[in-house]
């Protein structure tokens, strides 16, 4: 690119168009003949196309009905014959990737909403064999679980403490308070400063959560132990266990 061009002034060129009326000249005879021939050919072509269209319509109308009727009869027969000769299932299994098809279909479908919208779940449940289901449910385990979770001992305590339990616990509590007052006074009188040693052997049933006879033997024990007179309380025998 030169500096002249980049200047932008010397590169600009102007084109001026001027018109003036042409002089009328009579058409030559050859020209006229050509126009006539061309028009005739165009008309003929147009006519031929129109005729062709009309003929096609007529023919197709006339032929379509019997042909369709024939096809209607023949195609099913042929198709049946074809299908009969082909093991379609085997063909599909061999040729189609069924997993991909199903996966694709499932990807495209919102199965949950389809089931919710279109399935009468109540009817399905009504038809279900509930007994068989319940037979398979671990009902006893479930019941134990519920009992454990709701803390039944607490509920029992709440319900019994309403009437007799409240009175009983109140009495026990008052007696306990009086015990402490009495023992405190006595301890002060005898100058016992270390307090009392109240630990006793044995496990309280009250802390076991249930009433177990796990502290002794059988409460109705009529066994050889009792017959031999070997009671647990032995007067003057053995010394106090040293703590």
């Amino acid at each position: 690119m030169t500096d002249d061009v980049s200047d932008g002034l010397t590169a600009r060129q102007e084109v001026v168009l001027t018109t003036w009326p042409a002089a009328h000249q009579p058409a030559p005879a050859a020209r006229t003949l050509f126009d006539v021939v061309a028009s005739t050919v165009g008309l003929a072509t147009q006519a031929a196309v129109t005729i062709a269209v009309v003929v096609e319509h007529s023919v197709s109308r006339a032929v379509a009905t019997p042909v369709n009727a024939a096809l209607d009869r023949m195609v099913p027969v042929i198709a049946a014959a074809v299908v009969e000769r082909i093991d379609l299932t085997d063909l599909v299994i061999r040729q189609v990737d069924l997993g991909a098809v199903v996966t694709r279909a499932l990807d495209d479908l919102d199965l949950t909403s389809i089931v919710i919208d279109r399935v009468d779940i109540d009817a399905v449940v009504a038809k279900a064999d509930m007994e068989a289901i319940i037979d398979r449910v671990p009902v006893i385990d479930l019941a134990n679980y519920v009992v454990d979770e709701i803390d039944l001992p607490q509920i029992i305590r709440d319900s019994t403490s309403g009437i007799a339990g409240d009175v009983m616990n109140g009495t026990r509590r008052q007696a306990l308070g009086a015990d402490r007052i009495v023992s405190g006074l006595a301890d002060r009188i005898v100058f016992r400063r270390r307090g009392r040693k109240l630990d006793a052997p044995g496990e309280p049933q009250s802390l076991g959560g249930r009433f177990r006879e796990d502290l002794g033997g059988d409460p109705y024990d009529g066994g050889p132990d009792d017959d031999a007179g070997a009671g647990d309380v032995r007067v003057g025998e053995a010394t106090e266990p040293v703590p």
């Binding site: 502290l215 002794g216 033997g217 409460p219 009671g231 647990d232 309380v233 032995r234």
Partner: peptide
């Protein structure tokens, strides 16, 4: 509750 020296229930004789 009354228990014996082992912390068990006293027997009939006791």
């Amino acid at each position: 509750r009354v228990v014996n020296f082992r912390g068990e229930r006293v027997r009939w004789a006791g």
